[in-house]
Amino acid sequence: METTKNTQRIKRIYIIPAAIVAVLIGLQLFNQPIASKPVTGHMDEAPAEVLAILQRSCYNCHSNEQKLSWFDQLAPASWAVKKDVDRAREVMNFSEWDKLSTGERTGKMYAILNMMQAGKMPLREYLLLHPGAKVTEKDIEVVKKYTLSRSGNEAPHNTPPATAGAAPKTFPVSPNGVKYTDAFKQWTVISMSTLFDHSIRVIYGNDIAVKAVREENFFPWPDGAVVVKAVWKQEEQPDGEIRPGEFVNAQFMEKNAEKYKDTEGWGFAKFSGQKLAPTGKDALFAQQSCIGCHRQLSASTGYLFDVPMKVNPASLTEKILSK
């Protein structure tokens, strides 16, 4: 009796791992390799120490030169890896760095620095299995020094000169369906900002957006909220004060949870120059060139960066309103 029970237990002990192994082997049939793509150009302008950090911590996802370990290549882990690599290369690819303009490269360096400082990159779940990819305070200092050196000696703005010409008679539409409207000129100003690229910005909100800011109703922002950021080149006055000069672009974020599912419910759009030319060749542009940053770095305010800072006494609102 005793022995039969034991053999039964032993059998069971072996059957479970055997089944797992069988399933794992089966899963490998569905293993799709990461598409191999050519290297077109590296970040040759950066110092070697900066490159070394990016190669060590970021290249496995943001390049065409993966050095994956065996466990990254086994299903089901490999599925997650492939998904991350596809997505990472879509937003930034260190093997295709030559495709970016000088201004875009500076913009990416700031994005890189911010992601590292916020501890968002490399992705946390990746670090669990690849602890060597963790970035240190020293790495961040190195990247910061280089990033600041780039913006110092750069032309005042990174946008090509706006093409001359009259404003279009009918308003343009972004490829993802966001329509330009000039109604924002009458909306309430929710904040102002500047960026390292020597631009100056004003952020307008419609009534729904303003109400959401005042009530901190960010999780999620209500449908129908629209925020528009107008961007100008900085124009310096003789006394050193800075004013908005030439118009660069107007950027929209329009909340519709149903319509813009892939971009956290926000419809992004950018309309540039006097002609208000929409950015993006198809609806995917927002996924490729907008949401990455907003999702990773401004989630704590519902994916908007320029919500007013929480630094004024609440009583001030009534004071201002009563004037």
């Binding site: 000129k185 009458q186 309430t188 100003v189 929710i190 102002m192 500047t194 100056i200 004003v202 307008y204 909100g205 303003v210 800011v213 005042r214 901190e216 900085q234 050193g240 004060e241 800075i242 004013r243 908005p244 704590s300 919500v307 007013p308 800072m309 929480k310 630094v311 004024n312 006494p313 609440a314 001030l316 609102t317 201002i320 309103l321």
Partner: peptide, 26 residues
């Protein structure tokens, strides 16, 4: 975010007036 219950995110309410211009003094 650190607790800031007596602080608010305020938006200036200009009433009937509209935005005309902005400036920055470094």
């Amino acid at each position: 975010e650190r607790s800031t219950h007596d602080q608010a995110r305020i938006v200036f309410e200009p009433g009937d007036l509209q935005f005309i211009a902005s400036s920055l003094n470094p």
